[in-house]
């Protein structure tokens, strides 16, 4: 197919889009709405995912020791814990260091802490490996550490992080569910718009078939028209997301920082933006291709 035919067919597609009128506008708006919903959930889920990842990184298992080991024995004890597997980092906190930290946290009331004998136990702060920071793996690690003779108590767990991760997955599913229904509606509207165009252009298409234009070339403007509607809907959705994000960010970011511990909110990545635009074009292409006409 030559460039001039392609140009001509693209022009025809644009003319069709204008010819389809309100039905084309409603299919563009439905595409916008569906991708805006998916995109909105995506932004929220991305930030929640960032928070989960951050919290997973900061996850610690605190191993309280019955007695403070002699400085020479600390290294051997840490090696034994490392050999349990699933451990990324270990830090020894002596009784004195624990008291220093307490005084730092107490601030003005630190004098009270200074008058008492040091009641704090020595401990080891164990950071599990990312791959081992699941509830099951961390639970097993805690059990193994608790069974060591030097250990009095082990604190830590990932249940709450996991619950947040599950909430994030649920949020993604809800977003995909609502977005999916809206996508289906958008595809059907694009199909209806294209079918109306097919009906309006049936004489032209008959002539094209009679003079020997291949079916793929005949359907190309319909496909382009669908892609045009989908892409336009996706661009509007993206603009809506950008405007909505900019407007909401100043108010929402402090709340997110307070509840999720994220210093900054993030918008969709470049890949996500391309995926969103591509989904719009694909959605329109499917709608355009599904349109039925005489062949």
């Amino acid at each position: 197919m030559t460039a001039s035919v392609l140009g001509f067919l693209a022009g025809e597609a644009l003319r069709d889009l204008v010819r389809a009128g309100w039905i084309a506008i409603s299919s563009v708006l439905l595409t916008t709405l569906s991708l805006l919903t998916i995109g909105g959930f995506w932004v929220f889920s991305t930030n929640l995912g960032d928070a989960v990842a951050r919290w997973r990184e900061q996850l610690r298992v605190i191993v309280y020791l019955k007695e403070e080991p002699a400085p020479a024995a600390v290294g051997a004890l840490m090696d034994r814990i490392r050999s349990e597997g699933g451990v990324a980092r270990i830090e020894f906190v002596s009784k004195a260091e624990a008291l220093r930290r307490l005084k730092r946290e107490l601030g003005a009331q630190a004098a009270v802490a200074g008058m008492l004998p040091n009641p704090l136990p020595a401990s080891l702060e164990v950071t599990p490996r990312a791959s081992a920071s699941t509830p099951d793996a961390t639970g097993a690690l805690i059990q193994r550490l608790a069974s060591m003779p030097e250990v009095s108590e082990v604190q830590g767990g990932t249940e709450w992080v996991e619950r947040l991760a599950q909430f994030q997955r649920l949020l993604q599913l809800i977003g995909l569910g609502i977005g999916g229904v809206l996508v289906l509606a958008a595809v059907l509207t694009v199909t209806t718009a294209t079918t109306l165009v097919l009906y309006a252009r049936r004489d032209e298409l008959d002539i094209m078939r009679l003079v020997g234009v291949p079916e793929a070339v005949i359907r190309l403007p319909l496909l382009l028209q669908g892609i045009g509607q989908g892409l336009l809907g996706a661009i509007l959705a993206l603009l809506g997301l950008i405007v909505g994000y900019r407007l909401a960010r100043p108010g929402v970011e402090p709340l997110v920082s307070l509840t999720l511990g994220l210093p900054h909110m993030t918008f969709l990545s470049g890949t996500a933006i391309v995926t969103l635009l591509g989904s719009g074009a694909l959605l329109g292409a499917v709608g355009g291709w599904l349109a039925k006409g005489r062949s």
């Binding site: 001509f8 004489d203 002539i207 009679l210 003079v211 020997g212 234009v213 070339v217």
Partner: peptide
């Protein structure tokens, strides 16, 4: 079909296009 021309009892001209455009249309789509 590209090797043949076909005419019918009903001229089947495209009503929204001029006579010239009806003929040019065939050349353009081919």
């Amino acid at each position: 079909r590209r090797a043949m021309g076909i005419v019918f009892q009903d001229a089947k001209l495209l009503p929204g296009r001029t006579v010239y455009e009806n003929i040019a249309f065939v050349l353009r789509v081919l």
